[in-house]
Every structure is written in C-alpha cells, then in structure tokens.
Design a binder for these strands. Structure first.
Lengths: 144, 144
DNA sequence: GCTTATTCCGAGTAATTCGATAGGTTTTGT
DNA sequence: ACAAAACCTATCGAATTACTCGGAATAAGC
C-alpha cells in the first residue's frame, strides 16, 4: 500500500506551484530544487500534469509552469489519480466498461471485494477533501 | 496504491479458515483450491500467518491449519499489516524508533506529510473495523 | 514398519515496475 | 546570436512481485 514517487512528487510540485500562484511561470529547475526532485524525472511528471490540464507551460527563456486554476479548485485526489491512475487497492475494482481485463466472475458473491471497495472510498474521501489551497494555508500556520 | 497479492491472498485464506472455524485442521490444498491460489505460494503466506500467531498448524496426514482465536477477534487490518508490513502510503511515516532509515529532516515543516498520515489513519480505521466474523456474516447474507 | 498425506524450508527465477538518466529538439526572451 | 527553458523518446539498473522447484520433516492409517 505504498504511494509511488510519481504521486508524491506530483503533489509536491503542484503544492510548489500553488505557493507561487499568480507570480507568473515557475521554472522546473526551481521547483525541482525546492522539492528535492531529480530535474529530468520531474520533467516527465510535469508532462503528465500538463496533459491532464492542471498546469500550463510557457516555453523558452523565463518560461516555466503555472496552475490553470485556483489552488482551491484542485484537490490532492485529482493529482494522485492523474499520476497513479484510479485508486483501487485491487484490480477487480476497476470495471472500466471495456469488457476484457480484470473482470472477476464471482464479483457479486465476493465478500472481500466489499472490504477493498470501502478502503478505496475512504482514501478517495480523504484525498478529495484536501485542496492545494488547504495545504498553503497549513504552511502559513506552521510558519507562525 | 495497490495491495499486493500477499495481502489479498492472506485475507482470502484467513476468511476460508474462519468459514471452517471449529471443524478441525483445514488442509492448505483445499484452501488453495477454494480460493484459487497457487498451493506453493500460499504455503509461504501461511508461514507468515503462523509465525505471527494468527493460525496454528498440524503436520502430517490429515493435518492442516486453523485459527488460533475466534473469527471475531481477528480484523482484516491485523492480517494486512502482518502480510504487507505497516500501512504507510509513504516511507517518512515509518519512524520505527531505530534512528536511521527513513527519517525526513523537515518532517515538522512538511505539509504533505499530514495528508499521507490522514490517508493512513483512514485506511487503518476501515480495516480494523472489519473482522473475519463480519465477513462470514456477510457471506451468510449473500447466500439468501 | 510402510505408505501416503501433509506441513515446513530455502533457493531460484521470470516478469514487471520504479526511479531515474541520457541526449537531443524545439521555442523564446534578452 | 545566445542562452534559458520546455519538450520528447529511449534506455537502464535495481528492486519487487508472484511464483516455481525440490526436497526434508512429521504424523495418521493400514
């Protein structure tokens, strides 16, 4: 039940952009340094976040990244799901409409499936209840 | 955020033993067949559960495994933690008293750490609130 | 006592994933 | 023109996962 660095780094980077929201484009380099992440690796992660529409980029000198929406409108859950795929402790919870793959024939009768579904829901609840703005507020509080 | 098969199979096997609680030793083979798990692999998992004290074994012909306590006294959380290690979405939550390893120097200032701690707590809450007896009851309900 | 059913144990292994690294190509402000 | 930046694709070593294999020890039943 570990989060991969993708999710962790993704949240860290988005948090960094949230802190600097409204200050123009923030360079990948500076984010990587502040959050202590490999530059090249973070680059790939930023690509994912950009394609998902959570950040926009400006190329060329003095370029960088910035959020496409207010920090209060982006939840940690949004970020995690984009970085790690849908949250599901077990694959049989992924009924992605396309018939094949992880279908479990006794899903209806499976009692443990219910357990994993509850876990999934509780994780999603927690993650969706925390926005980037919340994290920024917390940071403010810790400073004082 | 995936559970490994260790955790899943562990719960499935323990659930199987709970269903047959009080019926004497249950052979690995029959558990493996009913739960559709590789026999040899399940063998290793049973070893973990035995060493943790949740099941006891009887060797030789007509031997097998059985729970050491009532199904109501064993939670899904107990099983998962034994099979997968402590639940912690990120390593910096593991302050296992022995100073080295995953200590994060800015833990006190880290706002994302709080997020992961909330996730951990909510997962533990769900898993600890469900006992093997609960699963057996659910199975009964589904039958009718 | 022999056979057979079973748990126990340790090593090996194929496949996958993770976390990066490398090396280049655009694009753009100065 | 130059340098700073985003973008892209490919590769790679290490670790982990989910097994498999081959036995050794133990006990019940005949």
């Amino acid at each position: 039940m570990k989060l991969s660095t993708k999710g962790r780094y993704g949240v860290a980077a988005m948090y960094d952009l949230a802190i600097h929201y409204g200050q123009g484009p923030i360079s990948l380099k500076s984010v990587a340094q502040r959050q202590d992440i490999s530059e090249h690796y973070l680059e790939q992660l930023m690509g994912i976040l950009r394609k998902a529409g959570y950040i926009k980029s400006i190329r060329g000198a003095q370029g960088g990244y910035s959020l496409t929406k207010e920090p209060s409108l982006i939840s940690v859950g949004d970020i995690i799901r984009v970085m790690e795929g849908p949250i599901a402790p077990v694959d049989c919870l992924l009924d992605d409409s396309c018939g094949d793959s992880n279908y479990c024939d006794k899903a209806g009768m499976c009692v443990t499936r219910g357990v994993w579904a509850k876990v999934r829901d509780s994780i999603n609840n927690v993650l969706d209840s925390i926005s980037l703005a919340d994290l920024c507020r917390e940071e403010q509080a810790k400073r004082s």
